[in-house]
Every structure is written in C-alpha cells, then in structure tokens.
Write a protein that binds this DNA or RNA. Sequence first.
DNA 1: CCATATTCCTAGTAATCCCATAGGAATTTA
DNA 2: TAAATTCCTATGGGATTACTAGGAATATGG
Lengths: 153, 153
Amino acid sequence: MFQVPAKTQYAIRALAHIARTGGDSAARVALAQNISIKYLEGILNQLKLSGIVVSDRGRQGGYRLSRPASEILMIEVVAAMEGELKPVECVDDSSVCSRGAFCMPRRFWQGLRDSVENYLKSVTLDDLAEEPTVRINRINQSVINPLKTVRLR
Amino acid sequence: MFQVPAKTQYAIRALAHIARTGGDSAARVALAQNISIKYLEGILNQLKLSGIVVSDRGRQGGYRLSRPASEILMIEVVAAMEGELKPVECVDDSSVCSRGAFCMPRRFWQGLRDSVENYLKSVTLDDLAEEPTVRINRINQSVINPLKTVRLR
DNA sequence: CCATATTCCTAGTAATCCCATAGGAATTTA
DNA sequence: TAAATTCCTATGGGATTACTAGGAATATGG
C-alpha cells in the first residue's frame, strides 16, 4: 500500500519526458508515455498553475520547464498534484485533539512525514530525466538515495 | 496528501492503548479511543490474524499483545492493515514495463519506499505507548526520529 | 484570412475504495 | 443460564479516482 495516485505518476513521467526533449505538446507527451491525452492535458495545466512548467498556446505551442530540471525538486511536483504532505489531520496542528502537543501517535506521524519529505527534497527532476546508470550505492550517506549513483562512461 | 487511512490510525491508537493497559476488550478500547465499536472489532480481528495480538472470547475476554511491545515494529502494524509497501505497481517487478531494470522513475519510487520502510522499522509499539517526553532531537543520527528522545524524570 | 494545432475550461461518469452500520452466531465464564 | 465477549457476513452512502466528451480561446503557417 501507500499507493501513489496515477495522476502523480503521470505528472512525473510527463515532466521527465519534457525535461529530456526540451519541451513538447500534451498530445505528443501522452503518446510517448502511453497516457490518456485528455487526462494529461489537465495534469499539465495543473503543473503550469504551480509554476513548474510554462505553456504556449496555438500552433507550435506546448509545454516547457519553467526552470532548469536540476532546480525542480520532486517534492514540488508531488505538492503540485496532491498538496501538502499530511499523513494525518493533526500532524501540524496540536489543537486538533485533547492530547495536543504531547501526543505520541502525532510524533510518530510527524516522523513519517519528515522521512518522506526529506527524500522528496533530495531528488530533482534532473535525477529522473537522466539516462540510467549502473547502480552503486555510496556508503556513509545519511540518506541512501538510489538515484544518486556513480555515472559510468 | 499521502493520507494514512483511518483504519491504520485506529489500529495504532488501539494497539498503543492495549500496550498501556496490558489488554482490554474491543468495546473498552473503542470507548477510550473514540472509535466506532463495530468498526474496531474488525480491525482488532485483522491484527489478530496477523499475529500482532491474541484474543480471548467470552466473559473476561479481550485482546492482548502477542509479544512485548518493544518487539512489535510499526511496519508490521502498517503491513497488517494495508499490506506490502508498494507506491507503484512496478516497484519490485522490473518486468511490468519495457523500460525494465533501468527505469529511473522506478528507482525513484524504490527510494521513496525504502525511506518509509526504514522509518517504520525504526519505531516499535513501545515507543508509541510510552508517556510523552520532552523532545530533544539528537544530532548525528542518520534517521532523525522524533520518538527517540531524551527521557526526563 | 483561414485551417489547423494547440492550450484551457467545464461537466459528466463508471468504478472503486473507505468508513462505517447491522444483525447475529459462536464461545466462554461468573 | 445470562451476560460479555469475539467472530462472521452483508450492506450502503459518500468520497475519490481516472477517465471521457465537447468545445471555447488562442496562436501560427500558408
């Protein structure tokens, strides 16, 4: 479980495609990534409203990244599609229930959120858009990130 | 987002209650934790089938932990309610799509799963059941865990 | 100027999942 | 034997998800 919605998966694949191609139309992204065109249109529009891509209408139009892929954190992408990371309602509001600030379950959920948040902040779109590399995990990293691997050739 | 289902939240609160009290009936747990009795019955039954609690029927019956709270990892509890951690379908099966083993999005999701998994393996039910403590984060920890804090008094 | 390619906007919809609720059978014990 | 409990099955309303449909608005090449 902890299923990530198809919408978010589509957004990420679409952005990786746009990063690699340097910009493309919704229809061409959808075709290349095997995603429903009309559905993807809405997703790309949402990414535009969040400032992650920019769009040009009309012929020769399409979507481009608003900034270099290396400056787009994956947490921004997830936030654009799903909003703030909030595993439980009370996670950043101790006034939700009577246990308040000293509630152990709440601390537990905060820890979970922080784990996810730190990971999503450690990966950029550029990491996802690049060609695959041989996977060699570095040791002595506080966060073991499968995308930060040694590049061969 | 990344919302945790109410069912899982209930399971955790119920288990923390059972750990503190040393065992209780579904009805009393539900009352104390403000959870629907009938719904909680099903949840506790599920936890029993997963071997996390044991039950006694009839008068004086109820639920107890199957082992010390310090030996029950939170990942077991989450798995009991939601099954395996799998953010996307392909996460541990490279044959799902044609990109296979060298798919960058897939590595990305694996990293996310590992982050969550490592956190949930680092916390036991005992951590959640204990009385709240003043929160002092230790530095130089690879995983910053808000539940592992310095105990005062 | 106009056909075409594109984004942008709104509405609907089938399927699925979530959070219960209901009723009662089976079991144990005071 | 009555009461307290777990255990089992079925049902339903509400929300969310993943689309589908239709077309308006906008830009551009010829």
